[in-house]
Amino acid sequence: MRINFSKIMNDSVHTLNPIELVIHLIIISFILTFCSFFAAGMITSSSNANPILVFLGCECILFSYWIAVFSLKFLNKHFDMFEKDNPNKNTFEGWIIGLMFYGVGFFFCLTIIFHAFGNYIVGMGIGLVFVFPQLVMFFRRKTCFNERSRIISNEISLGYEPRHYWLLGLICGFATIGFGFFSLGSYLSSGNPPLIFCLIVIILSFMIISLILSPDLMNKKLPFEIRKNNGFNYYFVLCIIFCLIFAYIVYSLWGLLLG
């Protein structure tokens, strides 16, 4: 039997036969495990962190991939994961759920790695940056993040494309949620800044990301169409600028509190 490696690595796993699936999983596992070894060595080379713990943290991404693959049959029964006329192409819902698995993998990965350095709270906060956007999009997949958003005056446009908003949520999340949990980690280790300050920043951060990931609501207020490519680009830049200003204000207030 001739093995088509291009098909094995590029086609969706649910279209592969059992032999092709096994080969696919072996290749992916080898690549990710090698990356985990390399990352563990790099991260712990100049620290006292436990390399085994760091390695296991990195492997969480591989574990999440395996879970996603073996859950695919179940997911296909309950969600519209792939387009009916193209089984190798994810629907919007398919992307949201697929990214959810990676987000959970990164959450546990970062939590365990930061735990190896004695600051798992910061790791959890940064990990939540990978999970929270998918959660928002998942609960709003029927009302916002779906293929219907692509139709504007009988024309097909970008719509509220989940991958674009995942990236936007990720970037903005680092400047908001990640910064909030960093301040909480600082409080737990040194007592500064005050706990109430940390909690306010974290709550505001989740509210900001929730608002950013409600483009259908923002689209009613902005003078351009977010569902089109140019409009989304403007929205992308505006959101990042806003979050950077938020981070700067928080950092400045933190400095004032330290006196």
Rank of each mutant, 00 (worst) to 15 (best):
residue 120 Y to E: 14
residue 93 E to P: 01
residue 101 F to R: 05
residue 98 G to Q: 10
residue 113 I to F: 01
residue 105 G to V: 08
residue 126 I to E: 00
residue 127 G to D: 08
residue 90 N to R: 12
residue 131 V to E: 09
residue 87 P to W: 00
residue 124 M to Y: 06
residue 124 M to I: 15
residue 125 G to L: 04
residue 84 K to R: 14
residue 127 G to C: 03
residue 96 I to Y: 02
residue 119 N to L: 09
residue 113 I to N: 01
residue 82 F to N: 05
residue 131 V to I: 14
residue 91 T to D: 06
residue 83 E to W: 10
residue 78 H to E: 04
residue 80 D to V: 10
residue 94 G to W: 07
residue 91 T to L: 08
residue 95 W to C: 14
residue 129 V to Q: 04
residue 118 G to P: 09
residue 96 I to C: 07
residue 116 A to P: 07
residue 94 G to Y: 07
residue 119 N to D: 12
residue 106 F to E: 11
residue 114 F to L: 12
residue 99 L to P: 02
residue 107 F to D: 03
residue 75 L to K: 02
residue 108 F to M: 10
residue 121 I to S: 09
residue 83 E to S: 02
residue 97 I to N: 03
residue 130 F to A: 14
residue 84 K to F: 06
residue 116 A to N: 11
residue 114 F to A: 15
residue 74 F to R: 06
residue 100 M to D: 05
residue 106 F to T: 04
residue 82 F to I: 03
residue 81 M to R: 05
residue 135 L to T: 13
residue 112 I to V: 14
residue 77 K to F: 01
residue 89 K to D: 01
residue 101 F to D: 10
residue 107 F to G: 09
residue 87 P to S: 13
residue 102 Y to C: 08
residue 97 I to F: 04
residue 74 F to K: 11
residue 82 F to C: 04
residue 120 Y to G: 01
residue 82 F to E: 07
residue 80 D to N: 15
residue 112 I to Q: 01
residue 86 N to K: 13
residue 134 Q to Y: 01
residue 119 N to M: 11
residue 86 N to R: 12
residue 119 N to F: 07
residue 104 V to I: 15
residue 83 E to D: 09
residue 124 M to C: 12
residue 77 K to T: 06
residue 109 C to N: 14
residue 88 N to L: 04
residue 125 G to H: 08
residue 120 Y to T: 07
residue 91 T to K: 08
residue 108 F to R: 07
